[in-house]
Nucleic acid binder design. Structure first.
Lengths: 107, 107
DNA sequence: TGTATAGTTGCATTATGACGTCAGCATGCA
DNA sequence: TGCATGCTGACGTCATAATGCAACTATACA
């Protein structure tokens, strides 16, 4: 579980700006360029570029370079899968909690 | 989906310290006091208090005051449910993406 | 070759938030 | 009533990171 509860992934999603971009890409359902998203969301495109590349680096987005434009697309299935895995692993821990009434579990 | 992709929830989970506390509570499977967790995880208890109360405020933990001690317990099922809802909603968007090839979706 | 376009990166500024200390509050108990 | 305990809240400090601007690189095209 501790592996799945990846702080880095959540850090990405803790930024309203990034969530806005991601949500935009998920809803769009097709690859979008940096300029396109920047215009669509009214955010400085250097900011958009940085956010998108950081999300791509963490496997949340797919990036495809084609000429001078980069097409970003949300890895929708993988993201959903990741959340489901977390849910499953939490449920699993729930059903086998280790210290009924006493004991240390932190380390 | 924008409602489910709550940056506040992810912000909670983006802090390694908080994740440690949450993971500890989930694994423990029983209510724990602030002092208990602070000792168990070797973290200053004012820090623990702050983190636990913020997680309780966001519905991740249950807080029960009993005399001077506060018992915190992970809302395991609710958390898992929340992640599943996110996964479902992402899948749903995927299957009905709104702007095939054009159009604005951000606002 | 010159110019326009698409995107990235460096930099300074600003904002956010985590931490530890300490004081304060409520509760329990002698 | 006085004191100990469990926790919370305010404050100052520090580190991280988000932002906007401008300089830069790379590609396309006339």
């Amino acid at each position: 579980m501790d592996r799945l509860l990846d702080p880095e992934l959540f850090r990405l999603l803790s930024e309203p700006t990034r969530v806005k971009l991601l949500s935009c890409l998920i809803k769009c359902g097709r690859p979008c360029s940096v300029t396109e998203i920047a215009e669509c969301c009214s955010i400085d495109f250097s900011v958009v570029s940085r956010h998108l590349s950081s999300m791509a680096k963490l496997g949340v987005l797919d990036a495809t370079k084609e000429g001078r434009t980069v097409w970003y697309e949300a890895r929708t299935s993988e993201i959903a899968e990741r959340f489901r895995a977390i849910a499953d692993s939490i449920d699993q821990w729930k059903s086998q909690s280790c210290c009924n009434g006493a004991g240390r579990v932190c380390e």
